[in-house]
Write a protein that binds this DNA or RNA. Structure first.
Lengths: 338, 338
DNA sequence: TGCTGGCACTCGTACGTCATGAGTGCCAGA
DNA sequence: TCTGGCACTCATGACGTACGAGTGCCAGCA
C-alpha cells in the first residue's frame, strides 16, 4: 500500500502536470507544494510510484507524468467533484431557459458544456425507448401514402413516411389515430409493441394490411441504435490537446463523426452516476489518448439519455466532473418543465 | 493580357501544387508538362505571373505557389467542372436512396460529400420560407398548453409549445386546425403571414387570444436566420490541410461551430449556380486560408437551400465542383420524391 | 527505518557552423 | 522571343558542442 505522502505526491504531480503540460520534476514539486520533505525524498517516492505504474518518464532525464492508472487513482481516491460557482450556475440556467424546442435545448447544452469545460461536448437526445408517448399523429399525404409523427414527453419528434398496401380512407385514418393514441399515449415506448400487437384484428379486412404497415413503421422507429441521435460541439477545443496534437486529433475527429462509436462511449457507462473513462480504458483506439466524462440526465428520477465531454487525459477532472454534473441537472429540469 | 502560354504555365503550377503541396519550380514544370519551351523561358513567364500577382514565392530560393488571385483565374478561365464517373454517380444514388427521413437525408448527404471531396461538408436544411406547407398540426398538452407542429413538403418538421392566455376546448382546437390547414396547406411559407392575418376575427371572443398566440408562434418559426439549420461533417479531413495546419485549423473549427457564420457563407452566394469563394474572398477571417464551394439545391426548379464544402485553397477545384454539383442534384431528386 | 545532502551521470534541447542543392534573376547570343 | 549559362540566395539537414534539468545512488544522520 502506498503511504499517505506518496499519494500526496501523486496528487501534486497530477495537478502540476494538468496545469503546465510539462513533465514535473522533484525539485519543482517541493517548491510548489508544501510537502515538508526534500526533493531527494520525493525522488524516492516517485521511484516507488513509477514501480507501481502510476507515473512514467517520457525519457530518462525528464520529470514524471501520470499514467492512465495514475489518473484513475487520482479520480477515485484523491479528488472530489468541484462544484460550480454560483454565478456559473446562474449562467447555465439563464442560457438554457431560452430554448424554444428540443433541438434548441440540445444545441444550447452542447455549446454550454463545451464552453464550461473547454473540451468537446457530446449530448445524446432523449432516448425514445426510455421516454413516454405524448401523441401519435397520422396524416394522409396521398390516397395510399401516410405520414406518421411521434411526439415524446421529452419534446422529441420523429416522423416517417408509410406506403400503404391499399388506399386508406379518412374515417379509417381517424379511427386508427384515435385507437392508437388511446392505447399508447402516456405509456412508455418500450411497452408499445405489446400494446398495439392485436390492433390490426379489430379493423376491416381491407384496412388490416395498412394498419399492420403503420404499426411496423412505428416499431421501426423504436429500434435501438437507429433511434439514437446526438449532437457534438466544441471541436475547436481539440486544438488545446497539446504539442503532439496533429497525430492525436485525427483519430479523435474520426471517432467523433461516427455516431455508433459515440453512442457506445456514452452507453458503456453502466453506473447510473457519473462515469469517467481514462485513456486506454476507452475501447475505441482513436480515443486512447482521451478521457471521457459522462453522466445520465432525465426529466424525472430516471435517466433518458446521457451527455458528457471528451478531452485529453490530462484534464482538470474535478472541474470537468463538476460542470458535467451541473449541466446534466439543469437539462433534466428544463426537460421536466417542457 | 497574359499570353496563352503563360496561362498554360499558371494552370500547370496550380495542378502541380495541388498535387504535391510543394512550391513548384521552373525545371520541374518543364519536366512534368509538355510546354515546349525551356525552363528559362518558363522562369520569365513566372516572373511575369508574379508581377501580376497570380503566383508568389514563399521565400527567395523556392518555387512558386498560386495566390488567391491565381486560383481565381484558374477557376474562372482555365478549368472546367469535372463530371463524376458513372460508378461514383451510382454510389451516390444508392447511398442517398436509403434515407428514412429528412434528418437522415441531410446526414447522409453530409457524409457523402465529405467522403467524395475529402473535405469538410456543410449542408443546410431546406429553408422553411422557401418551402410549402404540407400540414399544420395542433395538439392539446394541457388545458392551456398546445403543441404546434409544422410539416413541409421537403419533409422538415418543426414544433413549438404554445402557452394559451385562456383554456382552449377540443372543438375549438379541431376548428382552428381545420381552418388553418385549409388556408395554408399547399401554400408557400412566405405567403402564410397574409393568409392567416384575419383568422382570429372569425373565432369566439374567448378564443381569439389563443388563436392569435398560436398564429404568432407559427410566424415566429418562420423568422429568417432562426429558422435555418444545418449539419456539418468530415471535420477529420481538416487534418489534411497541410504542414502548417495547427495554426489554421483552430479558426476554421471555430467558424464551423458558428451557425451564423456558415449560413452567411452559404447565403452569400447570390449566383443561382455554383459559387466558389477563394481564400480572402471569404469575409470571415478564420476562413481566409480556405476555399468554399457552394451550390443551391431544391426539389423543383428553385433552390430551397444550399450545400457545399470547405477546404484548403489548395484544393482540386474541378473535382470538388463536380462532386458538389452532382450531390446537390441527387439530393434535389430525393426530396422531390419524398 | 526513514530522511537528507551530495555527486556523478543521462539525455533532450538549443545553438552555431557548414555543406548541399533547388531555384532564381539576369545577360548575352541565336 | 527563346535559350543556355552563370552567379547568387537561402532553406534544409547534418554535425558537434555546451547547457541544464532531472535522475539514481550512496553515505551520513535522526
Amino acid at each position: 500500500m502506498l503511504s499517505e505522502r506518496r499519494l500526496e505526491v501523486l496528487r501534486a504531480i497530477v495537478q502540476d502536470y494538468v496545469g503546465t503540460e510539462e513533465p514535473v520534476g522533484s525539485k519543482a514539486l517541493t517548491e510548489r507544494h508544501k510537502l515538508g520533505v526534500s526533493p531527494a525524498t520525493v525522488r524516492n517516492d516517485m521511484a516507488a510510484l513509477e514501480d507501481e505504474g502510476f507515473i512514467a518518464q517520457p525519457h530518462t532525464s525528464a520529470g514524471r507524468i501520470p499514467t492512465d492508472k495514475g489518473y484513475r487513482l487520482f479520480v477515485d481516491k484523491l479528488a472530489g467533484v468541484k462544484p460550480l460557482s454560483a454565478p456559473e450556475r446562474r449562467a447555465i440556467q439563464n442560457f438554457l431557459d431560452g430554448a424554444v424546442d428540443l433541438d434548441d435545448v440540445v444545441g444550447r447544452t452542447v455549446r454550454l458544456l463545451a464552453q464550461l469545460t473547454r473540451q468537446v461536448a457530446v449530448v445524446q437526445y432523449p432516448s425514445l425507448t426510455r421516454s413516454t408517448v405524448r401523441h401519435v399523429e397520422l396524416l394522409s399525404l396521398a390516397p395510399a401514402r401516410l405520414m406518421l409523427v411521434v411526439i415524446t414527453d421529452t419534446g422529441r419528434v420523429e416522423q416517417r413516411h408509410v406506403d400503404c398496401p391499399a388506399p386508406f380512407g379518412e374515417t379509417s385514418l381517424a379511427d386508427l389515430r384515435a385507437r392508437l393514441n388511446s392505447r399508447v399515449a402516456g405509456r412508455r415506448f418500450s411497452d408499445v409493441p405489446q400494446l398495439v400487437q392485436d390492433l390490426p384484428e379489430s379493423f376491416d379486412r381491407d384496412d388490416q394490411g395498412t394498419v399492420a404497415t403503420v404499426l411496423a413503421t412505428l416499431l421501426e422507429t423504436l429500434v435501438e441504435e437507429s433511434e439514437e441521435r446526438l449532437m457534438i460541439g466544441g471541436t475547436a477545443n481539440l486544438t488545446r490537446f497539446g504539442h503532439d496534437f496533429p497525430l492525436v486529433i485525427r483519430p479523435v475527429l474520426e471517432a467523433l463523426e461516427e455516431q455508433v462509436v459515440l453512442l457506445k462511449l456514452l452507453g458503456e457507462a453502466k453506473d447510473p452516476g457519473m462515469t469517467v473513462r481514462i485513456g486506454h480504458e476507452n475501447v475505441h483506439e482513436g480515443l486512447n489518448s482521451t478521457s471521457v466524462v459522462s453522466v445520465g440526465y432525465g426529466s424525472g428520477g430516471e435517466a433518458v439519455a446521457k451527455l458528457g465531454v471528451v478531452g485529453p487525459t490530462r484534464m482538470d477532472y474535478p472541474g470537468t466532473m463538476g460542470a458535467v454534473r451541473a449541466v446534466a441537472r439543469y437539462v433534466g429540469q428544463i426537460l421536466a418543465e417542457s
